[in-house]
Design a protein around this nucleic acid. Structure first.
Lengths: 205, 205
DNA sequence: CAAAGATAGTGAATCAAAGCACAAAGTTTG
DNA sequence: CAAACTTTGTGCTTTGATTCACTATCTTTG
């Protein structure tokens, strides 16, 4: 392993490696080669090796990578060796779907608290998560020391909610609103834009 | 405009240009320059010009781009000058959230029919969309000549559902299940992977 | 235990995208 | 109406990612 700067594409692929590993660990495999990896993920095998080599010499020549060990290492690289608490703003369609989504609620990520402006929703509970008044968001996020925010409010309200989250100490934002958020550069942003995905998709049809 | 091959990144950005245009058309702007565009979207202005120049010489030197005309042209490039009917498989959390999502239901994309295996859901209706028996999916998609499928079933079932959709004539798939789908290369895939986004996000924290 | 086989790690070559910088073509101003 | 200004379109350069191809190790086999 040599010191090099890590392409963001490599970071993009780490979750895929991890997911693939978890699956084959389940199937009882102890080792996996870069070639095997690359087939399962539609990649070039050199790319797999290079991606992993940014973080250490995890493999054994002639053998491959030990599945359990590699999975642990990737989890550690991605900072998944702790549980991440999240705050969700906007308990509408997508928001409440995420609250009941079991994909992450049981694992590395957990929504601790949700917020909305709608008086009919405030005080309710979805899948064990309380919906609080949006007015109290800043205080509650700060008090609970939450570092991850999910934005599922309408586009018009997204920037304001993001600003409040940042003010409250949030360091990473997952935004579902179809808006380009303007955040301080030390705050990280992930964007999920369903309409954009559809629009790109049909270009190719 | 010269004949060149179009980078996929350019296609990625077209929906953003379009959204930006629609916003400033609303604000009454008649023209926009590449520099103005680039500020709003955090891009390099040469990139904006180059992106647009792949499809024609849309601008006027000294003036910029006419907002209305450019929006029409981008819509046409993206094949948004027709309405796209969609079929949705899996009326659970995310699925039903998408059925009530107003972001695309009124516009260029419309879910015509949904499918599930759960007898409690079959026959019900969400936001005006009928939930049909998953058994009948292939026939119904074929009969209604639907070309776009949305997959919101659990990961384990995703490949099978995708296969059925392809068999029924679907040409584009938007997949929310955290699985790498194996599709014939003529069928286009867009992937929305929330857990992956979160995992990448916390890497940077 | 030596030879054959498998596979990681990586420097060098290739490919692709982004950005620079300038000519061309329009608009505005005095 | 000429000079100054604005802004597009694009060839060329730079930057960054992918892939190739080879060496270094390790395992397996006869």
């Amino acid at each position: 392993m040599k010191e090099r700067s890590i392409p963001k594409e490599t970071i993009d692929r780490l979750p895929l490696y991890l997911r693939c590993l978890e699956k084959i660990i389940d199937e009882g495999e102890v080792n996996i080669s870069s070639g095997n990896f690359s087939e399962k993920l539609n990649l070039n095998s050199a790319q797999v090796r290079k991606d992993l080599s940014y973080f250490g010499d995890f493999g054994t020549r002639g053998v491959g990578y030990e599945t359990e060990t590699l999975a642990k290492q990737i989890r550690s690289i991605l900072h998944l060796d702790k549980k991440w608490d999240m705050a969700l703003a906007g308990a509408g369609n997508i928001g409440s779907a995420l609250l009941t989504y079991t994909g992450f609620n049981e694992g590395d990520f957990e929504v601790q608290v949700a917020f909305d402006k709608d008086p009919d929703l405030i005080g309710k509970e979805i899948n064990g998560v309380n919906i609080e008044d949006a007015e109290d968001m800043e205080k509650i996020i700060r008090d609970q020391d939450i570092k991850l925010g999910i934005i599922t409010v309408p586009a018009k309200a997204a920037q304001e909610v993001a600003d409040q989250m940042v003010e409250a100490g949030v360091e990473g934002v997952l935004n579902f609103a179809p808006t380009l958020l303007d955040l301080p550069k030390e705050v990280k942003l992930a964007q999920v834009d369903i309409t954009k995905e559809l629009e790109q998709l049909v270009y190719y049809l």
